[in-house]
Every structure is written in structure tokens, then in C-alpha cells.
């Protein structure tokens, strides 16, 4: 299934602990359009246990998670449609 998903951007969070890996994931997602897909590489253990659940909690969809040869994980996240719009400050 994963081969059919077009990946629009990547974040390599190998060696990046919690919660900075989630910060990087959010930075990656913020740069995408709704519906686009971010691949995040996460370490085994707490990172792969925590980050996918956190991005899902924010409304994004985890499409796939796959163990890589080096033991880390590739997680594909589709950016949610209709992210909460921000009220612009008065300028």
C-alpha cells in the first residue's frame, strides 16, 4: 500500500528524542497543504510510540508505519483538511 502513497516531504528524526521529534513533525506538517503526506523517520521505542498518536490527536491521519532495516520507523502522515484557521493579529 505504501508504494501508492505519494510522499510530499520528509523529516528525518533519527536520534531526536521526545518531544523535539514532535516539534519537527509539526514543522513539517505546517509547511504542507491539507491532504499532502509527510514521511517522518522515528526511532524505535518512545518516539514511534508517541509521535504518531500525537499527530493523530491533532486531526492528521497516520497512513502507514513501517520498520526500516536500521531499526527505525517510517511513518506516513496525511495532513488534515481544514486545520483550525488562525485569527490574524491587527496590523
Amino acid at each position: 500500500m505504501t508504494t501508492e502513497v505519494r510522499i510530499d516531504a520528509k523529516k528525518n528524526c533519527r536520534g531526536v528524542g521526545c518531544p523535539m521529534n514532535l516539534v519537527h513533525a509539526k514543522v513539517g506538517l505546517a509547511a504542507l497543504e491539507p491532504g499532502q503526506v509527510l514521511e517522518i523517520i522515528l526511532d524505535h521505542g518512545p518516539p514511534v510510540n508517541n509521535v504518531p498518536a500525537s499527530v493523530e490527536q491533532e486531526g492528521h491521519t497516520v497512513l502507514d508505519r513501517r520498520r526500516l532495516d536500521d531499526g527505525s520507523w517510517s511513518v506516513l502522515v496525511r495532513k488534515a483538511a481544514g486545520m483550525r484557521p488562525h485569527r490574524p493579529p491587527r496590523t
Binding site: 518531544p19 523535539m20 514532535l22 516539534v23 519537527h24 509539526k26 514543522v27 505546517a30 491533532e58 488562525h86
Partner: peptide, 20 residues
């Protein structure tokens, strides 16, 4: 990113909120 990480982690603030 590290300085503002606790803001960026908040769903209601996030990257966009910190930019603002």
C-alpha cells in the same frame, strides 16, 4: 524551535501561532 517548543507543541498555538 527548542526555545519555543512548548508553544509549538500546543495544538492551539503550533508553528503558525509561534510565527504570529
Amino acid at each position: 524551535l527548542e526555545r519555543y517548543s512548548r508553544h509549538i507543541l500546543l495544538q492551539d498555538v503550533g508553528v503558525e501561532g509561534q510565527i504570529r
